[in-house]
Simulated assay, not measured.
Amino acid sequence: MMWGHGDGMTWWMWLSMGVGTLAFWVVVVLAVRDLLPGQKKVAYPPPRPEPLTLLQERLASGELSPEEYEQRRRLLVDGH
């Protein structure tokens, strides 16, 4: 018995049933998507090192002479 409202469903009952069904399937799809092994998160490239760090690495590896290093360091730090 439906408390005197007849034996049919009202519009809000249909609406709540539809919203509930939609929410259920959204949760299922999101859960399956997260569980799949092929789905990877977006990997951002690592940040670039500071220019002085790169300059020091080049000096340490022998790519620059101490004079070239000092000249380029002054250019980076002082701007001239």
Rank of each mutant, 00 (worst) to 15 (best):
H80T: 08
G79L: 09
L30S: 10
V77R: 04
P45S: 15
G18D: 03
E57C: 07
A31G: 11
F24K: 05
M17N: 00
L55M: 02
R33I: 06
A23W: 09
E70N: 15
Y44T: 05
G6A: 07
K40M: 06
A60C: 01
W12I: 09
L76P: 03
L15K: 09
V29F: 10
Q56H: 09
S16E: 09
W11P: 02
R73T: 01
W14R: 06
P66K: 02
D78N: 13
K40P: 06
F24I: 13
V19L: 13
G6Q: 06
P49A: 04
G6I: 10
P37A: 01
E68M: 08
V32A: 04
G18H: 02
R72V: 01
L54K: 14
L59G: 00
E63N: 12
G79M: 11
L35F: 11
L15N: 09
H80Y: 08
T21W: 07
S16T: 15
A23I: 13
M2A: 14
P45L: 15
Y69W: 07
G79F: 07
G8L: 11
R74F: 00
M9N: 12
S65C: 06
W11F: 15
K40D: 15
W12F: 10
M17K: 00
V19S: 06
G8I: 05
L59N: 03
E50H: 15
Q39R: 14
L64I: 05
M2Q: 12
L75M: 14
V28F: 06
L54E: 13
D78H: 10
L75A: 13
G18K: 02
K41Q: 11
R74C: 00
A31M: 13
L52I: 07
E50I: 09
E68F: 02
V32H: 02
G18R: 07
V28H: 03
